[in-house]
């Protein structure tokens, strides 16, 4: 049941992103940021569940597959939506609101997955999770700036 719910949420977020007609991101950027977003989330999840034991994914098929879907699709696509919105925003104030808003949204999804028994916080403090998403989004903005500069130079240097 929880897997079906997350299947719908993931499909909805993917549909929401790909139906945007005038995307701010080029196809290569979508591939690259998707990979980086997924890598950051998987490292965060692996460290919390396997090393620090501060969170856990229940050993049941539904939650475990829902978590697999979330770390490879949901969070990376939310990252793409964030970067698209961030790029489309004009002015520092709007961009700051976008950064904080998306960080809270992503934390909200993590909180929801905890409440539904998918990625359960044991000793992981809520503000750590919030800080993680803020840092995650800041890192992604930095990567986007560097990557765009590299692409604009033709990628030859």
């Amino acid at each position: 049941m929880v897997f079906l719910l997350y299947l719908l949420i993931n499909a909805g977020v993917v549909y929401g992103f790909f139906r945007i007609r005038s995307k701010q991101l080029a196809p290569l950027e979508i591939l690259f940021y998707w990979c980086i977003g997924s890598m950051l989330v998987q490292n965060y999840s692996a460290l919390q569940t396997m090393n620090f034991k501060s969170a856990m994914v229940p050993d049941q098929l539904g939650p475990a597959f829902a978590h697999l879907l979330n770390r490879t699709v949901l969070y990376p696509v939310l990252t793409l939506l964030f970067l698209h919105t961030f790029k489309a925003s004009k002015g520092a104030g709007t961009r700051l609101i976008c950064l904080i808003g998306f960080s809270l949204l992503m934390y909200g999804f993590e909180y929801l997955s905890g409440a539904l028994g998918v990625f359960v916080h044991l000793t992981l403090k809520e503000w750590w999770a919030m800080t993680y998403w803020l840092l995650h989004n800041l890192i992604m903005v930095g990567i986007m700036i560097l990557f765009r500069n590299k692409l604009q130079s033709g990628g030859a240097r």
Binding site: L28, L31, F32, C35, I36, S38, M39, Q42, N43, S45, A46, T49, M50, V57, D59, L61, A64, F65, H67, L68, R71, T72, K150, L151, G154, G155, A156
Partner: peptide
């Protein structure tokens, strides 16, 4: 540029498979 993107793609592909098969689920 191709090397950079392909490197990241491969890294994530292997890490995703490894995490899924060796750890959860």
């Amino acid at each position: 540029m191709l090397m950079l993107i392909l490197w990241v793609y491969n890294l994530v592909f292997v890490a995703t498979l490894d995490y899924a098969l060796a750890a959860t689920p």
